[in-house]
């Protein structure tokens, strides 16, 4: 990876950062009192996707592992939750189980790829192929013989009627729309803060070091493959969380969760926002989702056509993404102003 595009090891956050986080959290708590349900639903799904983008952005920007297949764990999380919840009638344990299954799978897949020391580009393509195969396999399960427990997989049509999360203190009623909003907003904020803090720890510094120079870290005595696998599994877990929340949001899972467009969208969110920050992927998800919804409503036939152009333009013109580019522009202006002041 070209060093100038990469994020640097993070310092512990300053007091103002905690202040901003607290303000955002407060705003999230207040929001459902002021905006209508449609907007809450739209925002919830953006938070779910932002989590997925965070998982990829963290892995790509900080660990230097470009996984195109975060949708593997996203889809697997959603399907695992649907199958477990419909089979058991419970929702809390399936929630945990649906996180564990993709995490275990990411450990297995990551082991073969990372311990095989395959090059970055092979890893990207392999993850992409795995998600394609998942989609194809799920699509082929439309017959009645494909059942897990008492749940039919339904192939193309997906599994409808996935139960919402019930909480013991809510008398067994599934989460309301506001509840889902709080859950998704809270999950996104927590994961963001946790990743930000993780980057200041020894683990975070080591993975950034590996991204910069894996051989050097190895000579310093770190088991780089273990660290990389750790980052891969962590990102898999975040993507799985996103998938479970997606199933809770729509009460529905479908093979589209694994498909190439979904995988491409994750890449686009991250690259548009900027992969050298954690806030970039969140920002990118918001702006791309908002724009594609808007394009859908104004009747631009093929949104993928526009997304394809966006991806090409960003790779060719703004490879660092929006936020770092804007940051650079500010820095440039500030230096110019400061330079002029010093000259006087």
């Amino acid at each position: 990876m070209i060093p100038e595009f990469s994020a640097t090891a993070a310092r512990p956050p300053k007091a103002w950062w905690w202040g901003v986080i607290a303000l955002i959290a407060l705003a999230m708590v207040m929001l459902p009192y002021y905006v209508d349900i449609a907007l809450q639903l739209d925002l919830s799904i953006i938070f779910v996707f932002a989590l997925l983008a965070l998982s990829m952005g963290f892995l790509w920007g900080y660990a230097g592992i470009l996984s195109f297949g975060q949708t593997i764990f996203f889809g697997l999380g959603g399907y695992a939750y649907a199958v477990l919840a419909l089979n058991t009638g419970m929702t809390g344990l399936p929630f945990l189980g649906a996180l564990l299954i993709p995490v275990a799978f990411s450990a297995l897949l990551g082991y073969f790829m990372i311990y095989g020391r395959i090059s970055d580009i092979y890893l990207s393509v392999t993850t992409l192929v795995v998600t394609l195969i998942f989609e194809k396999s799920i699509r082929s399960t439309s017959g009645p013989e494909y059942v897990i427990g008492s749940v039919r997989l339904n192939g193309q049509n997906g599994i409808p009627g996935v139960p919402g999360l019930t909480l013991p203190w809510l008398d067994g009623a599934p989460l309301s729309i506001e509840g889902v909003f709080y859950l998704t907003a809270g999950a996104m904020l927590l994961v963001y803060v946790a990743l930000r803090l993780l980057l200041t720890t020894r683990f975070g510094r080591v993975i950034v070091g590996i991204r910069e120079n894996e051989r050097r870290m190895e000579l310093l005595g770190y088991d780089t493959r273990l660290y990389k696998l750790g980052a891969f599994v962590l990102a898999g877990g975040i993507a799985a969380l996103s998938g479970v929340l997606y199933a809770l949001w729509g009460n529905f899972v479908a093979p589209e969760m694994f498909n190439l467009n979904q995988a491409a969208q994750v890449v686009i969110w991250v690259i548009v926002g900027g992969r050298s920050t954690l806030i970039g992927p969140i920002f990118g998800t918001g702006i791309v989702q908002y724009t594609s919804n808007w394009l859908g409503t104004v009747g631009v036939g093929q949104v993928t056509l526009v997304l394809g152009i966006v991806l090409m333009v960003f790779v060719l013109v703004f490879p660092r993404g929006l936020l770092p580019t804007i940051g650079d522009a500010f820095g440039y202006v500030r230096r110019r102003v400061a330079g002029r002041g010093a000259a006087r």
Binding site: M1, I2, L66, D120, I121, S124, V125, N261, A264, V267, I271, G301, Q302, V303, T304, L305, V306, L307, G308, I309, V310, L311, M312, V313, V315, L316, P319
Partner: peptide, 27 residues
């Protein structure tokens, strides 16, 4: 040709091209 030596970027740009072509042909 703008992306030689930047393997990952060629991967991303050709992915963009692929989405674009699918959208275009569908239209």
């Amino acid at each position: 040709r703008f992306l030689y030596g930047r393997i990952v970027d060629t991967l991303l740009a050709t992915w963009g091209l692929s989405l674009f072509l699918v959208g275009l042909v569908t239209t």
